[in-house]
């Protein structure tokens, strides 16, 4: 996703622009740079040729022109407009604390799932003797239900609060929101189902263990993705938004 801006020409352009914007308020600088970067990502594909990138940069115009516009915006009459409205509360939840709180709740959620999971994927053997005198041994994956029973609690402790924040906030796109809301319950279900599935398919304790380890690996993967991508992006966007409006 960052391929176009890593093109040497585009990278040099953005670097020049960043230097030229040095006198501009940091939030505004970050916002302008992010806008131009996104523009370049939209106009040049990941496999853009030098000529494509050159054409896209020509349409953007010289970095100096962008910087001039940024500095021109600091004219006194606009400054008046800015001070009149800047201290009003923002309509949407886009403050820096929002991704931090959401990250905290999600962290708690992941921890809850891990603790439940590490409680051991246990099972019990149930021996039943039928009327004909045959003895049947049945393995029951107890933990499947134990893990699933945490879902209702999760709904109130994790899903509902996260949904409330990310839906009210403008910091995330729809798929990002859906991911953050559903991550914890989905990995819970995975943790409950995979060991059971491993046992059902193979009928051995080894299958159950493989399922359990696969589930744990998946949880780590999902958590890394949610924190490394969605929460981090939210934090970066919130910094841009708040720094730009003070």
């Amino acid at each position: 996703m960052t391929a176009p801006t890593t093109h040497p020409l585009a990278a040099a352009y953005l670097r020049d622009l960043e230097l030229l914007l040095h006198g501009v308020d940091p939030g505004e600088r970050a916002e302008v740079l992010a806008g131009v970067r996104e523009h370049l990502e939209g106009t040049t594909g990941p496999n853009a040729s030098d000529d494509d990138v050159r054409a896209a940069l020509a349409e953007l115009g010289p970095p100096q022109a962008i910087a001039d516009e940024a500095y021109a915006g600091r004219s006194p009459q606009l400054a008046v407009v800015t001070t009149v409205v800047a201290d009003r509360p923002r309509g949407t939840l886009s403050a820096v604390w929002v991704p931090i709180v959401v990250g905290g709740i999600l962290g708690l959620g992941f921890l809850m799932v891990l603790v439940t999971g590490l409680g051991g994927v246990g099972y019990s053997e149930v021996e039943t003797t039928s009327s004909t005198g045959e003895t049947q041994t049945q393995l029951t994956s107890v933990n499947t239900w134990m893990v699933l029973f945490t879902l209702p609690m999760q709904f109130f402790v994790v899903v509902l609060p996260v949904a409330a924040f990310v839906l009210a906030s403008s910091l995330w796109s729809r798929p990002e929101r859906v991911r953050m809301i559903l991550a914890v319950p989905i990995i819970t279900i995975v943790l409950a189902v995979l060991p059971w599935l491993g046992y059902t398919i193979t009928g051995t304790e080894l299958g159950l263990n493989i399922g359990a380890w696969a589930a744990l690996a998946l949880i780590v993967l999902v958590a890394t993705w949610i924190f490394g991508h969605d929460v981090r992006l939210g934090l970066r966007r919130a910094r841009e938004v708040t720094a730009g409006s003070t």
Binding site: E31, H39, E59, L60, P63, I66, A72, A86, S170, S245
Partner: peptide, 19 residues
Amino acid sequence: SEGTLYPLLARLRKAGLVD
């Protein structure tokens, strides 16, 4: 030039006119 749009958008947002 297209690039000059971005400082302008940043300014409009700072002024609370766009979100």
